[in-house]
Design a protein around this nucleic acid. Structure first.
Lengths: 137, 137
DNA sequence: TAATTAATTAGCATCTTACTAATGAAATTA
DNA sequence: TAATTTCATTAGTAAGATGCTAATTAATTA
């Protein structure tokens, strides 16, 4: 339940950055993360530390890796994000604006609410940007 | 355009508190505001000063009053809030949860987007809490 | 191994939010 | 009117989020 983890906005952005790069062959390193987040390495390190304290990341030999909890948080976050984004875009809002707004609430919503919205939307396959919406349990 | 005013969350809450109490006969005073915001008077004063700097409030003889800009910001905020709240509640979300989420985006949205959502929703007369939605131009 | 790149530490800075204690001003009441 | 009470304001402090630079240490790679 991400909404109970009390993430800050930047911590949320960090979870997304780590998760999105999880498809790559190489595990994420601090330089990469700091480039993704557009902050300097010490700032990125600070974020990694905070997320480690919250049980989302483990920092093994310079490689930034999700814990189970972190992986789950990421998946929830993505589903929350895409569902809310889809809701807003399907109501006439510009997709990019819907995306930015969704970034501000996706880490605050409880997953059950999102599931209900997802159903109400007719279980859409993808968000306005064409990315798949995968329902997690 | 509230979204261009770069309000913080607490500044947003302050605008709402001032506006909501604007129906009362007496103009709002600092003690009242600090009670509404559940903060101590010095904290409330700080918020009033910040909103004054941003051109939303004037502090006349201890009475906290909107400028034209502030009044307009309040009305936009309320419309934004109720429209987004209605959107979320109409999609199966619990009204109270929809309200809390809406508080986190109503001050970030551009009014035009909200107008489009309002139309798409069929120009609803009231939000899930039964409060009137009044379209401003 | 030497040179380069990456990670980390230390120190600092700004903004937001929020407090207490003290003081000054205004309003009420005795 | 004088005394009391309430309100507004100032000053000082604090914590947390975000972010930086400069210096150092560790790890890679050429």
């Amino acid at each position: 339940m991400i909404n109970k983890m009390e993430l800050t906005k930047k911590e949320r952005d960090t979870v997304i950055a780590v998760g999105d790069s999880g498809n790559n062959a190489f595990p994420l390193r601090l330089v990469d993360l700091s480039l993704l987040l557009k902050v300097k390495p010490p700032t990125a390190l600070n974020l990694v530390r905070r997320l480690s304290r919250k049980g989302c990341l483990k920092d093994e030999k310079g490689m930034i890796i999700f814990t189970d909890k972190g992986k789950k948080a990421y998946l929830e976050l993505v589903e929350n994000h895409r569902v809310m984004e889809t809701l807003m875009a399907s109501s006439g809002m510009d997709p990019d604006k819907a995306c930015i707004l969704s970034e501000n609430i996706d880490y605050l919503i409880d997953h059950n609410s999102v599931d209900r919205v997802f159903d109400k939307l007719g279980k859409p396959e993808s968000c306005p940007h064409g990315k798949k919406i995968e329902q997690i349990h």
